[in-house]
Amino acid sequence: MFCGIELAARIERAETDLIATGSAAASERLGGAGFTFAFAGGVAAFAEPGSPLNKVAGLGFDGLPGPAELDDLEKRYAAVETPVQIELAQLADPALAELLTRRGYRLVNFENVLGRTLSEHNAAIVPSGIEVRPSDDTEFDIWLDVVADGFAHPDGQGVVSHEDFPRDIIAAAMRDLTAAAGVRRYVAIREGQLAGAASLRLADGIAQLTGAATRPEHRRHGIQSALLSARLAIAATAGSEIAVITTQPGSKSQHNAQRSGFDLLYTRAILVKD
């Protein structure tokens, strides 16, 4: 699958909408303590201290921000004592990266965006002994336990993430994304136990695979692949054209995605200014 600038901009718009919707929901939940506003064709968001939604995304496809806009952006994040984190796609305008580095932004990490086309004929391939099904609100806490446990015990392959989130912050973000942004939750059952958890969002013909985790004791049994295959089938049946997933470079998640037909579309640089 080839990704040009137009497709990258479309994927980034879907990501921007996900962040903006989740952050706005968090602000409403907390009585207006956060902020979400359009910025240089993308979005700048602050949900609450330590949230994974605190970021600036989608920039570089619709002009460059001016000095006054950047001053205002940095002041807003300074007011809530949070570094400015900009996720910049490599297919965005290169002049933006130059502008940001001149202002003192540091490159701290990368993340890969992978994608594949879908068709209505995609069928889920789930190994014997594993069941993948939707997860409702009655089991949100146990679903979250699996996600939080997965974050706490990374598979040790690939580039280590620069971020680490407490369980309560992950819980708040996922509740906001589920309620406001249409994120759906799924679980994988193995040997009668909830072995894995994952989520999916469908928007504008794009299926966003918004996270997956496997409990350490159930790893290397096909849980990740089963969750991935099941969500692809769901997305294809719903009429999505493409599926996208974001991974750490060289990670097991990237390995599983590429084995399932995903191609590396582009990389995002993570730039931070304290």
Rank of each mutant, 00 (worst) to 15 (best):
K75W: 10
G250I: 04
V146F: 09
N54L: 02
I19P: 00
I223S: 09
E87G: 00
A25Q: 14
I270P: 06
A233Y: 03
E163V: 10
T247A: 05
A20D: 01
S253D: 03
R133H: 01
L59Q: 04
L265S: 07
L107Q: 09
E15A: 07
A148D: 09
R29N: 09
T117I: 01
P83D: 00
A20F: 00
A197T: 11
F151V: 05
E241F: 05
G42M: 10
F110P: 00
E6T: 15
A33N: 09
G34M: 13
R10M: 02
T82E: 13
A78N: 08
K75Q: 15
T210M: 10
R76G: 03
R184A: 06
A24R: 15
Y105Q: 05
E120H: 11
A24L: 06
K75F: 09
F262I: 06
T214C: 12
L53R: 10
R259C: 03
A45K: 08
N109P: 00
I223A: 07
G104N: 09
E139M: 11
H121V: 01
R102H: 12
F262H: 08
V113S: 07
F110Q: 06
R175D: 07
R219G: 07
T138F: 14
A79E: 11
A40C: 02
V159Y: 00
G129M: 09
L194N: 06
Q224M: 12
D155P: 07
A171M: 06
H153C: 03
K75L: 14
S27C: 06
A238G: 03
A68F: 10
R116Y: 07
G150D: 11
I206P: 12
S135Y: 07
L91I: 06
D164M: 04
H153Y: 12
Q90V: 04
E163N: 09
I234Q: 14
P52H: 12
R259D: 03
S229W: 06
S260H: 14
E191I: 02
G63T: 04
L232V: 07
S199N: 08
T36M: 03
S51A: 14
K75R: 15
N122F: 13
D17H: 12
G205C: 11
A9S: 15
I242S: 09
E69D: 14
P94F: 08
R76L: 02
L70A: 06
P216R: 13
S253Y: 00
T178D: 03
G4D: 15
A181R: 12
L194V: 09
A236C: 02
G66L: 03
D155R: 13
N54I: 00
T82H: 13
Q157P: 01
E217I: 04
L202N: 13
A124G: 05
T246E: 13
E12W: 05
V159C: 00
A79R: 14
R259G: 02
P65M: 03
A95Q: 10
A172Q: 14
L264W: 15
A38T: 12
L200E: 05
A123M: 11
I5V: 15
A123S: 11
G115D: 01
N54W: 01
F37T: 12
